[in-house]
Simulated assay, not measured.
Amino acid sequence: MRITLFRSRMTDEFGQVRAELMASTHVFSSLGGRTVEEAMEAGMDPKRIWLAVCEAFDVPPERR
């Protein structure tokens, strides 16, 4: 998954403002105690990050 697709899915699922806020403030234990932005900066795979977001926020399987 490319970062642009990840960002698009975040916006589609949560709306632009909430997606941006979540990416910069919500800490995910499944990402090693990182926010989305920190995980991206650490070079984590965007698909792994997306799946962590989906699990944490109960995104239905058909939109994962």
Rank of each mutant, 00 (worst) to 15 (best):
W50Y: 14
R64Y: 07
R48M: 09
R9P: 01
D12L: 07
V27E: 07
E37T: 09
Q16N: 06
P61R: 08
L31S: 01
V17T: 10
E37R: 09
F57E: 10
F6N: 03
P46H: 10
T35W: 04
A52R: 03
L51T: 09
D45W: 14
M1I: 09
V27M: 08
F28E: 01
P61H: 09
A23C: 13
G43Y: 11
R48W: 08
T25E: 13
E62M: 12
A23H: 00
R7W: 04
V17C: 03
S8P: 02
R63K: 15
S8A: 12
E41C: 10
T25C: 07
E20F: 02
A19N: 03
M1T: 13
F14A: 00
M22A: 07
K47T: 08
E38Q: 15
L31A: 03
A52K: 06
S29C: 07
W50N: 05
R18C: 02
S29R: 15
R9M: 06
S8V: 04
I49G: 00
T35H: 06
F28S: 01
D58I: 11
T25N: 12
F6T: 05
P60Y: 06
D58G: 10
L51N: 10
R2C: 09
A39M: 09
E41F: 06
L21A: 13
R48H: 12
D12R: 11
E38V: 09
K47I: 06
M22P: 01
L31W: 05
V27L: 09
V53Y: 00
M1F: 14
M44C: 10
D58V: 12
P60W: 04
R2H: 12
S8I: 04
E37M: 09
T25M: 14
A23G: 15
T4S: 15
S8W: 06
R34W: 05
M10W: 00
V59Q: 02
W50F: 08
W50S: 06
L51K: 15
